[in-house]
Design a protein around this nucleic acid. Structure first.
Lengths: 346, 346
DNA sequence: TTGTACGCGTTATCAA
DNA sequence: TTGATAACGCGTACAA
C-alpha cells in the first residue's frame, strides 16, 4: 500500500504545483519547466499544450523552489540610510526600473545611518540569498565586509566614491562636488563662505563634502574659520536656524553653501523673513537639484547630481555580473559627472 | 561504490549548509535547526555548542530552503504607484519599520499608476510566495483580484477607502478629506472655489477627492462650474499653470484647493509672482501636510493625513494575519482620521 | 531532549 | 525532443 502523504500545515493556500500541470498535460515536470523557462527547447505542440494547462488551472511557479534548486535567485537587496529622503528616490527609481525589466525583484530596507543595522540587514539579505546588493553608504562594519566577501555576491556602492571600494562603485564624488561649488562661490568673489551640512557621524558623504569645501578654501587662499562650519539636521527649519547661527557668530559672512537636503531653501526663507537680499547681503548655494530650488525667488544655485543615472547604471552593472558573469566589472569604479547650475542666489 | 554527487552550477559561492554545522558540532541537523529557531527546545549545552560552530564557520541559514520546507515565507510585497513620490514615503517608512522588527523583508515595486502593471507585479510577488501584500491603489484588474483570492494571501489596501475592499483596508477617506477642506473654504465665505488635482485616470484617490469637493459644493449651496475643476500633472510648475488657467477662465475665482502633490506651493509662488495677495485676492489650500507648506509665507492651510500611521497599522494587521492567524481581521476597514490644519493662506 | 525519515516544488543531469 | 532520477537545504512528523 502506497504511503499516504499527510497534508502539511502552512500559511499558503494549496496552490497548484508543476506536477499538477504535468499530470494534466500528460507530460513530465521537466517538459513543463522547459516550456516555461526555455520555450525554444520544446516542440510547438508541447509548449502549447503545457501553456494552456498553466493558464487553465492558474498555475504560478514557485520561485522559492526554483531558486533553491537552480541555486540562482532573482532578488536584489538595497539598503538606503532612510526611505523618507527624497534624495534617494530618484536612484531607487532608476534601480527599480532596470531591475524590473529583467524580471528581478528589489528588497529594500533602511539602515537609519547605522552601520550595525546595515550589517544586520546585509545578513538578512544574504540569508534570503539575494543575488546582488546595492548599498548607499560606503561605511561598513568589518563583519559586514567579511560576510559580503564570503558570500561572493556582487555589490554596488553608490552614495560616494570610497577610498577602498567593496566591489563596484557607481556614484559621483561628494568631495569633488563640494569642491566645485565652493570654488564657484570663491570665483564670484565671496570671501567668507559658510558651510552647512548634515551631521557627519557615520555619514561619509557629509564628511567628504566638508573636505571638498576645505580643499577649495585652501585653493582659493581663504582662511578657514571653524565658526563658518555648521552641522545640522535635515529640514527647512534646520536651514533657517543655520542662518541665525552663522550670522550671529560671523557677521561678515557673505555666502552660505548648504550641502544637504533642503537646508538652502530653509536658509533662503529665513533671509527673506529678515529682509536680507540674496545674493547681495548673502549668497546661497545648495547641493541637490530638487525641483523647489528652481521655483523659489531668487532661484537657488545648486549642483545637478546624476541620481537617476546612478540607479540605472548600478542595476545594469549588477545584472551583468549576475546574468552574464561579467567578471571584468568586478571592482570597477564609475565616477559619474555632476554639474554646477548657476541661478540667481549665487 | 557510493554515487559521487557531481557539483552543480550556480551563481552562489558554496556557502556552508546546516549539515556542515551539524557535522562539526556532532549533532543532527534538527538540533541545529532548533538551536537557531526554537532555542528553548534545546539543552543549554547543545545550544552553546551549535551556536559556537555557527559563528565559527559563519553559517548563514538559507531562507529559500526554510520557506520552501515550512511553507512559510518572511517577505511582504508592496506596490506603490510611483517610488519618487514623497507622499508615500512616510507610509513606506511606517511599514518598513514594523515589518523589519518582526524579521520580515519588504519587496517594493512601482506600478506607474497602471493596473495591468500592478497585476504583473502581484503575479511576480505571488511567485515569490510573499506572505502578504500591501497595495496603495484600490483599483485592480479582475485577473489581479482573482489571483489574490486564489492565493489566499492577506492584503491591505491603503491609498483610499474603496467601495469593495479586497480584504483589509487601512486608509483615510479621500472623499471625506476633500469634502472637509472644501467645507472649510466655504465656511470662510469663499464663493468661487476652484479645485485642482492630479490626473484621475486609474487614480481613484483623485476621483474621490473630486467627488468630495463636489459634494461639499452641493452642501454649501454653491453652483458647480466645470471651469473651476482642473486636472494636471505633479510638480511646482503644474501648480503655477493651474493659477494661470483658472484665472483666465474664471476671473472671479476667490479660492483654490490644490488636492495633490505640491501644486499648492506652485500656485502660491505664481500668485506672489503676479503680486496677488494670498488669501485676500485668492485663498489657497493644499492636501498633504508636507513640511514646505508650513514654511512658506503665507503658510498654507492643508490637511494632515496619517501617512505614517497607515503604514504602521497596515503592517501590524498584516503580521497579525500572517503570524497569529488573526482571521477576525479579514475584511476589516480602518478609516484613520485626518485633520484640517488652518494656516494663513485660507 | 534528540534523532530519523521524508517531503517542500523545482531544476541539473544524463539517458532514451 | 522528452523523461527518470537525484539533488537543492531545510522543517515537519514522529519515534526514540
Amino acid at each position: 500500500m502506497p504511503k499516504q502523504s499527510s497534508p502539511r500545515k502552512g500559511q499558503f493556500g494549496s496552490s497548484a504545483r508543476m506536477r499538477d500541470v504535468a499530470k494534466r498535460a500528460g507530460v513530465s515536470t521537466m517538459t513543463v519547466s522547459r516550456a516555461l523557462n526555455e520555450p525554444s527547447k520544446v516542440s510547438d505542440e508541447m509548449r502549447e499544450r503545457v501553456l494552456s494547462v498553466v493558464k487553465e488551472i492558474g498555475y504560478l511557479p514557485n520561485h522559492l523552489a526554483s531558486s533553491l534548486s537552480s541555486n540562482r535567485s532573482t532578488t536584489i537587496g538595497l539598503i538606503v540610510p532612510s526611505i523618507d529622503n527624497s534624495i534617494y528616490t530618484q536612484t531607487v527609481k532608476g534601480l527599480s526600473s532596470v531591475i524590473r525589466q529583467s524580471g528581478f525583484q528589489l528588497m529594500i530596507a533602511e539602515s537609519g545611518y547605522d552601520p550595525n543595522e546595515e550589517e544586520e540587514l546585509i545578513t538578512a539579505f544574504l540569508t534570503h540569498r539575494v543575488s546582488g546588493l546595492v548599498l548607499h553608504s560606503t561605511e561598513h562594519t568589518p563583519q559586514a565586509i567579511a560576510k559580503i566577501r564570503k558570500s561572493g555576491v556582487p555589490v554596488v556602492e553608490n552614495g560616494n566614491i570610497p577610498e577602498k571600494p567593496l566591489d563596484m562603485v557607481v556614484s559621483y564624488s561628494n568631495f569633488d562636488a563640494a569642491y566645485a561649488m565652493t570654488m564657484h562661490l570663491g570665483r564670484l568673489g565671496y570671501k567668507h563662505i559658510a558651510f552647512a551640512s548634515l551631521y557627519s557621524v557615520h555619514n561619509d558623504r557629509s564628511q567628504d563634502r566638508l573636505k571638498g569645501y576645505q580643499a577649495a578654501l585652501v585653493q582659493l587662499g581663504l582662511k578657514q574659520d571653524p565658526r563658518l562650519v555648521i552641522e545640522t539636521s535635515r529640514g527647512l527649519a534646520a536651514g533657517a536656524e543655520v542662518v541665525a547661527r552663522v550670522i550671529h557668530s560671523v557677521p561678515e559672512v557673505d555666502a552660505l553653501f548648504c550641502a544637504g537636503d533642503v537646508l538652502a531653501v530653509g536658509a533662503l526663507f529665513e533671509c527673506q523673513k529678515r529682509g536680507w537680499s540674496v545674493p547681495d547681503r548673502i549668497a546661497i548655494a545648495s547641493f541637490d537639484d530638487v525641483d523647489l530650488l528652481r521655483h523659489v525667488a531668487p532661484s537657488v544655485t545648486t549642483l545637478r547630481l546624476p541620481r537617476y543615472d546612478i540607479g540605472e547604471r548600478s542595476a545594469r552593472m549588477l545584472l551583468s555580473r549576475i546574468m552574464d558573469g561579467a567578471e571584468h566589472l568586478r571592482g570597477s569604479v564609475v565616477d559619474l559627472k555632476f554639474e554646477v547650475i548657476q541661478r540667481e542666489s549665487a
